[in-house]
Design a protein around this nucleic acid. Structure first.
Lengths: 279, 279
DNA sequence: CGTCGGTGATACCGGCCGAGTATCACCGAC
DNA sequence: GTCGGTGATACTCGGCCGGTATCACCGACG
C-alpha cells in the first residue's frame, strides 16, 4: 500500500504537467518507452488509472489530479527533509535558522534573540518568502504576520498584535492628522497606495507603484510619490521625511512565530519556549 | 539534492528504530549486508553521517534524529497520498469522507450535511482518531474539538463554540443544581471523573473508570458510578437517567472543520464553503 | 481514400544496481 | 585467549531500469 517510490512520483509529475510522454521524457533526460512503462507500473500497483490516453494526447483522470497534488507536496517535502538533515549535520543540530521579512518586526526580533540564549542565524527574505523557506527546509522558524501571510500547514505561536499605520510623506497635508481611516487613505488624489507582489510574483492592477522591498518603498514615500499601510512597529525604519498616522479601522496585525507542523526539534521547541515566556 | 528514495527511507527508519542492522534487516525481510550498503549509500548521497557505528551497536547522530523524524512523516504522507488517490478513483472524486467522534456534534453534523448537497460518507471513529484518519488519507475532512484535539498540520474552520456541562446520574444530589464548578465536580466523594485514553492508548492514573466510548460512559453514569465533563451538545444522546449541569468555569469548546493543510480538492472546498455559509 | 506525421505501446536487449552468501575485522565478556 | 556478536566487505547473480527499434492507432490533408 505504501509503494510510492519517489522516482515514480517524479516521472508522474513530469508527465502530468505537460501531458505528453515524449516531452516529459525529454525533460527528465530519458527515452519515452521506459517512462511509459514506469507510469503503467505505477498505475498497476495503485490499481488506478491516472491518465486517459485517448486520441491526440493524454488527459488526467480525477485520481490523477489528486495524485499530482499529492506528489508535488511529497516531492517538496522530501527535498525539505534532505535539506534539514544536511543542515542538522553541519550546524551540530543546535543552530536555528529564522526567516523574517527584511525590515519588519525589528524590535520584537531583537528581544526574541536576546531571550533565546543559543545561536540563531537570521535569514532576511522578501515579502512572502518565509513560507517557502520553511517548506523548503532552508529555515526552521519564521516570523510571519496575520492576516498577510498564508499560515496553512504551520504551527504558530502569537507574539504581538498591533495597529496598522499609514506611512505618508512628512510634508503631505494628511500627515498632520492624528488618525485616518482606510477610506481616506485610499481616496487621496495624487498619492496612490503602493502595491506589493502576490506570491506568484505578479501584481494586482492599480494606480500605485509596484514595490519590491522596503527600502524602495521608503524612498518613494519620501519622494511624495506613494503611501503605504504597515504595522505600527514599522516606525523602527522610518526616515525623517516620513510620518506615521494610526488607522482607526484597519484590521490589527498579529506577528506570529511559525514552524513546520511536524517539527519536533529541541532547538525549535527552545525558541518557542523563550518566545512564549517573553510574551 | 532531491534524492531521497522512499525505499531508502524505509530502510533507514527500520535501522534507526531498533538500532541494530541485523534485526532491522530481519524485520524488513532481507539480509543484513544489502541493508548496510543501502544506508551507506544514503549517507554518501546526503554527505551526512546518520549513524554512529561504534563498539557494541549503533547510535543516531543529530542529523540522524532529524532524518528519522522527517522520514516517518514522509512515509506516512506517502501512504496517505496513495490511499487518497485510490479513494479518488473509486469514488469518482466527488464523494467526501468525513471523520467525527461517534456521538459528538450530532446536531451540527446534521445541519452541515443538509447544507452540503453532494454525497458525504460519515466515518465514525474513536476519541482521538480523526487526526490519524486525516493524516492516513482515509478521511478528507473531520469534525474536531479545540482544545481537546491536536490540530497541528491541519487547516481549520470554526463552526461552533459551546459551554461544557457535567453529566451526572439523575438521582445524584448535585443533579438538582443549576450550575457547578470544575472544583466541585472533581471533589465529589464516590463519583470519580471518567478517564479517556490518551493518543497512545494509555490512561493517566486516577480513581475514575477507564472509558473507551460514549455508550460505555453513558451506562456507567446511569449506574451512578462515574461522571464526565462534555460539551453542551452532548444532550443529544443523554439517557433519562442522566442530568446535564452547566459548568461555569470550564473552558469553552470550539468544534472546527479540519482538513489536511495542503488539500486543495474541489470537494473539500465545497464542504468548507457550505460550512462557513451556515455559520 | 491513401499517405503521412505524430502519438503512446510493445519487443527486445544490455548494463547496472540491488540482494544474497560467505567471510572478515573488530571488540567486549568470560 | 577464545568465543559470541557486531557491522563491513567481496563476490556473484538476477531482475529491473533504461535504450533502440518498431508497431498500432488516429487525425489531417490532399
Amino acid at each position: 500500500m505504501d509503494v510510492l517510490e519517489t522516482r515514480e512520483l517524479r516521472y508522474f509529475v513530469a508527465v502530468a504537467e505537460d501531458l505528453h510522454f515524449g516531452r516529459a521524457a525529454d525533460r527528465l533526460g530519458m527515452a519515452q518507452p521506459p517512462l511509459s512503462r514506469a507510469i503503467q507500473q505505477l498505475e498497476r500497483r495503485l490499481g488506478v488509472t491516472l491518465l486517459e490516453r485517448n486520441r491526440r494526447g493524454v488527459a488526467l483522470t480525477g485520481a490523477g489530479r489528486v495524485l499530482l497534488d499529492e506528489a508535488r507536496t511529497l516531492l517538496d517535502a522530501a527535498a525539505a527533509a534532505a535539506r534539514r538533515t544536511q543542515r542538522a549535520a553541519t550546524d551540530g543540530g543546535n543552530r536555528l535558522v529564522l526567516a523574517t521579512k527584511a525590515g519588519a518586526n525589528h524590535e520584537l526580533l531583537r528581544t526574541l534573540l536576546d531571550a533565546y540564549a543559543a545561536e540563531v542565524e537570521v535569514l532576511l527574505c522578501g515579502m512572502g518568502d518565509q513560507a517557502r523557506m520553511l517548506r523548503d527546509g532552508r529555515a526552521d522558524v519564521a516570523l510571519m504576520q496575520r492576516p498577510f501571510d498564508e499560515l496553512t500547514g504551520f504551527d504558530t505561536e502569537e507574539l504581538l498584535t498591533e495597529q496598522q499605520v499609514a506611512i505618508l510623506p512628512a510634508e503631505h497635508p494628511l500627515a498632520t492628522r492624528t488618525a485616518l481611516t482606510m477610506a481616506e487613505i485610499g481616496a487621496v488624489a495624487g498619492l496612490p497606495v503602493a502595491r506589493w507582489p502576490r506570491p506568484d510574483g505578479t501584481y494586482e492592477p492599480g494606480p500605485g507603484p509596484e514595490i519590491h522591498d522596503l527600502s524602495q518603498l521608503a524612498q518613494l514615500i519620501a519622494l511624495g510619490q506613494t503611501t503605504a499601510v504597515l504595522c505600527a512597529s514599522s516606525r523602527w525604519w522610518l526616515w525623517s521625511a516620513h510620518t506615521a498616522v494610526p488607522l482607526t479601522d484597519a484590521p490589527h496585525v498579529t506577528t506570529v512565530l511559525a514552524w513546520p507542523a511536524h517539527s519536533r526539534s529541541r532547538a525549535v521547541a527552545g525558541l518557542v519556549g523563550a518566545a512564549t515566556g517573553l510574551r
